[in-house]
Design a protein around this nucleic acid. Sequence first.
DNA 1: GGTATATTGATACAGTATATCATGTCAAAC
DNA 2: GTTTGACATGATATACTGTATCAATATACC
Lengths: 166, 166
Amino acid sequence: MHPTVAEPTAPFPASTHDHASCRDWILRRAESLCAEKKVRFTPQRREVLEILAASHRALGAYDILEHMHRVERRPPPAAVYRALEFLLALGVIHRMAGRNAYFACTRPEHGRGEIQFWICRRCGVVGETESVVIAGEVPRLAATLGFQVGAVNMEIEGECQACRGC
Amino acid sequence: MHPTVAEPTAPFPASTHDHASCRDWILRRAESLCAEKKVRFTPQRREVLEILAASHRALGAYDILEHMHRVERRPPPAAVYRALEFLLALGVIHRMAGRNAYFACTRPEHGRGEIQFWICRRCGVVGETESVVIAGEVPRLAATLGFQVGAVNMEIEGECQACRGC
DNA sequence: GGTATATTGATACAGTATATCATGTCAAAC
DNA sequence: GTTTGACATGATATACTGTATCAATATACC
């Protein structure tokens, strides 16, 4: 099972949170999910997740690439995209379509419902919520349209509490 | 003021709707909005909107470019992007971030609330709704996060009624 | 160890979008 | 009617995002 530590962060990560343990939680969850699913958490995949888990910011694939400092040579873009694809499938990162950017998921368990991404346009930090109201409203709207729901993506851009204080 | 014709289409455009008048409505609304705002609805901008209004599908910028048949030469990509930017600002088209695609807005008046985009993964047709429930839920969630909402983008991918019938 | 599978490396390229500077067009002021 | 200035477009180059393909390497399992 997953590490049963406390929820790593609030829905929107406060600047004061214990990020060392938050970061560890993200990595340990990935480890245990890989063990569960019998897939390999290779050094390359770990490195990409570590880079994302180092902050709560959404990073582009090429931003991640720049952080991958190898002694000999930098890996090709496809290496990053392969790792991102793997981590997305594992459920430990999310993709922000509106920004072509990726970030580490910090919520212990997302249900089948819809997730809302909140991104601060000043500091770039991303938060996540899972509203039961929206999770209920989407199927209701879909029913009136005769629409069969596949994937839902909801992104809210604005300013976080910390940045508004400045 | 805007043309006071009937609402052009249902939230999800039926295959049976009167598309000729729907198309005209989109173009005439753009004309009257440009007159209101004292900006120019140039032939190039009109052509891009006509291409989008020809269907209810979301098209990529380069798809649009291919439809721009000039006698002499095809305009450069930047021309399309400039027209798209103009039409976005005018409020007559929307951008689907998840697809890097653009489509003509068919809803008479969107309030300040959130719009939901529904895109069929089979036929590519896009519908729009404006849920009062979600419009109320977003500020409520934002308040609990201390987040100041800027732009909201919500996209639902799935299968429309017509395609499910197949 | 030998084989099948998964992963990574290497190279090339497709698709999306913008920067920059030159040129053209329109409409109002003179 | 010409000038002028703002807006719009053309032309060129390039940045950014993501994928295809095939070879080489590592891992797991027999």
